[in-house]
């Protein structure tokens, strides 16, 4: 019963962790806008979230197969590092830097709004649960 209550909280928690990771990635890209040879990185958020919540075809990351006695089972809520992709340069550059500041700033703003949205979902969820518990 409690499991059903916290299921959607778990989902949003995973989403929040991924959003903060993506925020860090985008901050790194913006920080390295003038570094020669730096290649911008980003994650495919949808597939990373699918993987983290276990709805991908690859199966739950928390159910790692333990075929030998010495294998250690993954802790609950554990997940693999999301696969990071490399952004290609939108314009050719003498110093081989592939950071496109317009794209990065747009992605940064988009990601921060969605981070806040996830936060509000969590807050709403908690409030709903508290109301249900209080029964008022």
């Amino acid at each position: 019963m409690l499991n059903r209550l916290t299921n959607s909280l778990d989902f949003h928690g995973q989403a929040l962790a991924l959003r903060s990771e993506r925020q860090r990635l985008l901050a790194s890209n913006i920080a390295n806008a003038d570094t020669p040879g730096y290649v911008a990185r980003d994650m495919d958020f949808a597939s990373a979230l699918r993987q983290a919540t276990g709805s991908a075809s690859g199966g739950l990351p928390s159910t790692l197969s333990t075929s030998t006695a010495g294998h250690i089972a993954a802790a609950t809520g554990a997940r693999a590092e999301p696969n990071l992709l490399y952004a290609s340069a939108s314009q050719t550059n003498l110093d081989r830097n592939s950071v496109d500041m317009d794209r990065e700033r747009a992605a940064f703003a988009d990601n921060s709004v969605k981070y806040e949205a996830t936060l509000r979902f969590i807050n709403g969820n908690v409030r709903t649960m508290l109301d249900a518990i209080k029964g008022q």
Binding site: S28, A31, D34, T35, Y38, R41, L84
Partner: peptide, 13 residues
């Protein structure tokens, strides 16, 4: 300038 890794994957200072 040079990229400096900041401990975690994807954190590049």
């Amino acid at each position: 300038f040079q990229t400096q890794l900041m401990g975690e994957v994807g954190a590049a200072g």
